[in-house]
Design a protein around this nucleic acid. Structure first.
Lengths: 337, 337
DNA sequence: AATCATTCGGAAAAGCTTTTCCGATTCACG
DNA sequence: CGTGAATCGGAAAAGCTTTTCCGAATGATT
């Protein structure tokens, strides 16, 4: 350690000296081990406090063979999905005395590999991969051995990998059932690109909720408001119009609502609209505000934290779990009183 | 180290044994030090590769007194501003052999304090604070001593703190000058809450660009599309309407554009509109697409990385620097041919 | 006075890596 | 043959912390 360069200029040896005890006694006092008088412990604690002593985690980790650190690797360059997940993770890991550090690979495999390398060098106790789409991703280009690894809002090509995801299909069922409960009988589904697994699952949830599916009411396009506008225009041009639209995400839903407004269609009176993601930037700015499905990403993060802790403690975890989503009704489906 | 638990099951001692050399020789070979025959070095490198050896960063950092790690502490729970900054930082720090790890405090001072504590325990070589608004923030509740600390897109109550920020005022000048260059003569400014420093600076840039300022053309409100809509409605109700509107951010601008459309005002023909932030979620979805001012956050991150490296190497850095923004013209100000 | 219990000191060892230093060996050259 | 250079081994030390073990000192009890 270069002295005077960092806030941690004092070692345990300094604390011991300051407290007038031996090095071993100082350690025992701070770690509540050994048989020391309370007076001796207090003396050491006071000395440590006065010196602003902070144990050197590096030395501790080296000695105990565990760093109590977890790395989170994300390829979500916008942070939209990762941040709530991280928040939930951090809460749970912190309660277990584990620090969480994130690296953002920005969808660059080389960068990701490098991050893994760095985290392994730091001897993290586990790794979590997450991103901005839940489809399978390539196995990392480094052997991870028995290190606990968990995919959250993400999956792996590796068979048996432990994965935790929102229940897209269930969420879509919620949305469709909500529209049905409102008496809607002709529900369209405007969604994203077919190569997203989430798109397929949401579509499956929609289809499973209907007694009869009309393929002409299912439209795929890009994740954008513009696509929502175009799709709505197409639906309006049909001989028989839908009386509700379940959009694959909130951006598409926003576009749909805008096109309906442009065409003097009243939402939800004439056509109800519900999105997916519960992205407040979209739901709140839309006119009327969007009903949506929340993926509960923070809860997903909490569940992931608990799961990883179990893995770190030696339990075996594998396979994919899906956590339920939540319906968030707003004025785009529920008329305001 | 608990064996078989992690990918790093081999120590340098194992590599030496595998290569049939001494521990010291193995170290010298991997670190390109000492006087070894190339043949000996190659033998050690091969052994290390075969065993998948990765040096223990903890032991290295302990020995050399430097961790080559930097902590990034953000209070931006959405990641919108932090992610591009992080990307720029990571690029520059990586080139200098330094790892970057992020903790997200989600605007909770207790959580932030805890993160600082964790990072200090890991003996980071420097700390970077960033967030979602650039105003002064309280001094962290922990003494950081001489540890290099840099505020990026953020400022500190601590006098002389090193800060790096986008040039809000300059960006506002760019936006206003752009409108002037298009022949606009009556430019309004619809912006965010007065308690944001960025709001005050952007207003100052706007005012400085005009030979004559009409206070009635400056409206403050919340950061939302709804406020943009309301403000536009107010401006349209004025005896003399503006022929251009400079919005404090893209969300407000989006709202303005929508209200103009609702009132059959053609953008940019009748009234040109420019935003700030260049947030693609807004700029691209708007009709027409929004001209905006980009804060160059990735570049800010790169500059911050370079600055922090200098600080880590012992140079003194203090005070606030501002990096220029970039004008991004789109159809909301420039008519499409 | 002797014995036992409590408390602490301090030495040693371990974790892993780097670096230095000294000694030993081998080979080449004068 | 003697000397010097190149090469490597291996021991030691350092970084910081934790833990164990044994010995020493003190106070209380018999």
């Amino acid at each position: 350690m270069s002295q005077g360069k960092s806030p941690n200029r004092y070692t345990l040896r300094d604390v011991a000296r300051h407290a007038g005890v031996s090095l071993g006694t100082a350690s025992k006092a701070l770690n509540k081990s050994g048989t020391l008088r309370q007076e001796t412990r207090d003396k050491v604690l006071k000395a440590a406090d006065e010196l602003g002593f902070r144990p050197n985690d590096l030395a501790q980790a080296l000695h105990r063979g565990q760093s109590f650190t977890v790395g989170l690797i994300s390829n979500d360059s916008f942070g939209r999905f990762t941040m709530p997940i991280m928040e939930g993770l951090e809460t749970v890991l912190h309660a277990a005395g584990i620090a969480l550090f994130m690296c953002n690979a920005t969808d660059d495999p080389e960068r990701e590999k490098r991050h893994i390398d760095q985290l392994l060098g730091k001897r993290v106790d586990g790794l979590i991969f997450t991103g901005r789409r839940a489809d399978r991703r390539p196995v990392p280009g480094l052997a991870l051995g028995n290190l606990p690894v968990l995919y959250v809002f993400s999956q792996s090509d590796e068979p048996g990998a432990a994965c935790l995801l929102p229940d897209d299909e269930g969420g879509a069922r919620l949305a469709t059932a909500h529209l049905l409960s409102l008496g809607r009988t002709r529900i369209a589904h405007v969604t994203g690109p077919e190569d997203f697994e989430a798109v397929r699952l949401r579509r499956r949830g929609y289809e499973a909720s209907l007694s009869k599916v009309d393929p002409a009411l299912i439209l795929h396009g890009p994740w954008s408001e513009a696509w929502g506008r175009e799709a709505a225009t197409r639906l309006l041009a049909m001989p028989v119009r839908p009386d509700a639209i379940f959009a694959g995400n909130d951006q598409i839903a926003r576009g749909i609502v805008e096109a309906l407004r442009d065409n003097a269609i009243s939402v939800p009176r004439d056509i109800a609209v519900i999105g997916f993601d519960n992205w407040s930037v979209m739901t709140e700015a839309s006119r009327p505000q969007l009903s949506s499905v929340d993926m509960n990403l923070k809860l997903l993060g909490e569940e992931a934290g608990q799961r990883l802790i179990r893995m770190i403690r030696g339990e075996r975890e594998s396979g994919t779990s899906r956590l339920p989503c939540t319906l968030v009704p707003r004025a785009s489906t529920v008329p305001t009183p």
